[in-house]
Computed example of a mutant assay.
Amino acid sequence: MSNPGVEGPVWLPSLPPSLGEYLAPNLQPVPLIPVLVLSAALLYMAGAISLWRRRRGWSPVRTVSFLTGCAAVIVVMGAGIEGYGLRMFSIFMFQQLTLMMAVPPLLVIGSPGTLLLRTTPHNWWGRPVLRAAIWGLRSRWGRLAIHPGFMVPLFLLSFYGVYFSGIADLLLPNWYGHVGLELLFLVAGILFTVPLISADPLPSRQTHFGRMIDIFAEMPLHAFFGVVIMMATTPMVDFFARPPAAWNIDPVRDQEVAGGLAWSYGELPGVLLLMFIMVRWQRDEARGWARSERAAAAAGGDADMDAYNRYLQQLADRPERPR
């Protein structure tokens, strides 16, 4: 298309949107995000294979989870859907929700940090990588990045701040701004997800109750955003108000679809995260009770229970008072 409406190295489809066109393997001229994610997947596989060759265990479930997240990013950013997302609000919202809500849990469950620490050699080129990782774990910047006071507002600002402040109209007409927003969405989603479910070493860890508070703080505000977008009667983002005529798109109807996606598709990963946290909480509590029982058995009994039993025995040994 000769006039894509976006400055920079972009390709815009000429055919009306359809499922086949969305999934068609049409790469953008500069597929930055797909290349970065593909590189991350190759490095992850190299690390996993190195552990398997040395007969050091690494979970296939983690591997599949991480690679599935990478594959989702490559499809959403590397197929024809990226071209339609340049001018359709609903498609761009679907990409944003995928990058922020669906992909980060898959990547985080893969525990790439643990894999990095296990596979990086302690030689001349591996030492800088390990030093950088240890610095991130010990620095105040690492603690700040996953602190609820930073990551929850960043997550919400990626919705309210981008669309209600005019940032979208400022950045989307330019390739650099468009890709920059997509990278922001992915980073914000990862920073929000890491303290909730990550098993990697972290600078600090929240309690299970604190994690549930973070989820409950985000979900209603996220749903409210979708309802506001869905009920708006005029285009809220001027850039999406004039899609290419050949696509036969009603911008207001397309905006309603975007709001519906934010309300439905955006809430489902949050519910799954909440269930994941509750299951892990219950499992950790069960492990704690089991450790306490083993420690009591090793010590010859439970001190609190023994004291209570002695108290009951004293009551039983008291002489009865004459009536």
Score class of each variant (00 low, 15 high):
R211I: 03
V252F: 10
D169F: 05
P269Q: 04
V237R: 06
H147C: 03
L67T: 04
I134D: 12
R205H: 02
M101K: 10
G180K: 02
P269Y: 04
G260N: 10
V252E: 02
L183R: 00
L38Y: 10
G85H: 00
I81Q: 08
V152Y: 01
W247I: 06
H178L: 15
A303V: 14
N309S: 13
L12K: 01
M93A: 11
A145L: 15
L196E: 03
G5I: 09
P31K: 12
A303L: 15
M151I: 08
R127D: 13
Y22S: 06
R291N: 02
G136I: 00
M100H: 01
L12M: 14
S204L: 10
L116V: 07
R294E: 12
F239I: 13
E320L: 13
P244H: 02
L171E: 02
W281A: 05
R140F: 07
L36T: 03
D306K: 01
L12P: 03
W141F: 11
F164M: 13
I190T: 07
G161H: 09
V64A: 15
D200W: 00
G177A: 10
V129Q: 04
F155H: 15
P31A: 11
M278S: 11
P201G: 07
E82R: 15
R283E: 11
S18H: 07
S14V: 12
L315N: 09
F89E: 11
L51D: 05
L116W: 12
G180I: 06
T193I: 04
W247T: 05
G210N: 08
M219N: 01
G259L: 04
V10E: 15
V35H: 09
F150P: 00
V30W: 07
G161K: 11
A286Y: 00
L196W: 08
F66N: 02
T98N: 10
N309M: 12
Y84K: 04
M219P: 04
F225Q: 04
L106I: 07
R55D: 06
G226L: 02
I74S: 14
L67E: 08
Y44H: 05
W281S: 12
Y44A: 11
F155D: 06
G142L: 01
E285L: 12
L107A: 08
A298W: 03
D254N: 14
A246P: 06
E182N: 15
M275Y: 10
S18I: 04
L42N: 02
P60W: 08
V103N: 05
L137C: 09
A79F: 14
S204W: 09
V228M: 15
H122E: 14
V152G: 08
V64E: 02
L172S: 01
V179H: 07
Q96W: 03
